[in-house]
């Protein structure tokens, strides 16, 4: 399982970074989204992987997953959406004002 997560994060990061380095806004937004998935998973994984033990207190249970990274990641996901939305709107504005969707405003 650990290997799977490591590979998944590696792949998400690679794909995200590659798209981030493109010259047009839309692929950059896609790349940013992929990279956010990777980063969220990364943060989440810092609490180690636990299967079938959510952090919901039950009297009969002793083992729980680490709730702290989860709380961090939960807000990170929502803020990630806010950031994506901002970048998207920025891209639209740039296209409207500059007439191009190149990241540097070039034609």
């Amino acid at each position: 399982m650990e290997a799977l997560i490591a590979i998944a994060i590696g792949v998400l990061t690679t794909c995200g970074v590659y798209l981030l380095l493109r010259a047009r806004t839309f692929p950059v937004v896609l790349g940013l989204t992929l990279l956010s998935y990777g980063v969220n998973l990364f943060l989440f994984a810092m609490g180690r992987l636990t299967v079938g033990a959510p952090a919901i207190i039950e009297p009969a249970r002793a083992a729980y997953t680490d709730p702290l990274p989860q709380a961090l990641v939960l807000t990170a996901i929502v803020i990630g959406f806010g950031m994506t939305a901002f970048v998207v709107v920025l891209a639209l504005r740039a296209r409207a004002d500059l007439g191009t969707d190149h990241v540097d405003g070039d034609q």
């Binding site: 650990e2 290997a3 590696g10 690679t14 609490g47 709730p67």
Partner: peptide, 25 residues
Amino acid sequence: LAGAVGLTAAALVWAVLTRPYQSIA
């Protein structure tokens, strides 16, 4: 470059996930 970033991320995750840790959980 993307591959290098991805590889280091994966290596870091692997190194962390296979080590025990202290948590304030």
